[in-house]
Amino acid sequence: MARLLIVHHSPTPNLTRILGAVMAGARHEDIEGVDVDVRPALEATVDDVLAADGYVIGTSANIGYISGAVKHFFDVTFDVASAETRGRPFGYYVHGRSDTSGAERAMQSITTGLGWSRAVDPLCFLGDPDDTHLAAATELGATVAATLMP
């Protein structure tokens, strides 16, 4: 069975809602043969990354960058992951209050360095998530999970 790893930093109700939508998409009844493993960024390990076949990363945009928790996740997994996980599909979302551009650049740079293959366009937006944002988050989760189906 394939495994999708969702790594997130969700310290606010808005980020928790977005994560819930991503998880709902990844676990949709039409997605078969894919286990979904959800880990807070400060708890995700190299073993989690190596055991997964695809990834969704969720972060807030903090002071123009990805959250410190997601940065820490990449710091502790990057060397091994870049050697062992090249070509694996991924997607990501960034939520902020004033600007997500720095966090978007960081995610693009890091995932390019990892050699991961983007399965879906990133979801990046400001403000409270509305139904359109949550639908896009659901689609993001479903799309990455669907790429892993046998």
Rank of each mutant, 00 (worst) to 15 (best):
N14I: 02
V120S: 08
T100R: 01
D121T: 02
A81V: 09
A103K: 03
A145L: 02
G113D: 03
R27S: 14
D30L: 07
A41C: 10
R118V: 02
D35F: 11
T100D: 01
G68S: 14
P11I: 00
E32P: 01
H95E: 14
T138K: 15
N62G: 07
A41E: 06
T77I: 04
G25L: 03
D121I: 03
T45D: 10
H28C: 08
L134M: 09
P13W: 10
A135Y: 11
S117W: 07
A41W: 09
V56I: 10
D35A: 14
G68P: 10
G64L: 05
M149R: 13
P129N: 10
D53K: 08
P40V: 09
D47P: 09
L50W: 10
R97T: 14
D47Y: 04
L4N: 06
I18E: 04
A2K: 07
I63E: 13
H72S: 11
S117N: 09
H72C: 06
N14M: 11
V80C: 01
Y65I: 07
T143D: 06
R88I: 01
D131P: 01
S109H: 11
S82V: 11
S101K: 10
L5C: 12
D99T: 08
L123I: 01
A69F: 04
G96S: 02
R97D: 15
D130E: 07
T45E: 12
G58A: 11
P89V: 07
D130G: 15
D47S: 13
S60M: 10
A52K: 05
F125E: 10
G54P: 06
F74Y: 08
A44I: 04
A21I: 08
A136L: 01
D37N: 13
T16Y: 10
G68A: 14
A145G: 05
D53S: 07
I66A: 02
V36R: 01
R97E: 15
A81P: 05
Y92D: 03
A135T: 12
F73C: 01
D75P: 09
R105D: 12
A24L: 14
V120E: 14
S10W: 04
V49M: 13
A81F: 03
V120D: 11
D53H: 07
H8F: 06
R86P: 12
G58R: 12
V144H: 08
S10D: 12
V76S: 00
A2W: 02
I110Y: 00
A142N: 08
V38D: 14
R3E: 04
R17H: 12
A137P: 03
R105C: 07
I6R: 11
S82R: 14
S60I: 07
V70G: 05
P89G: 03
S109T: 13
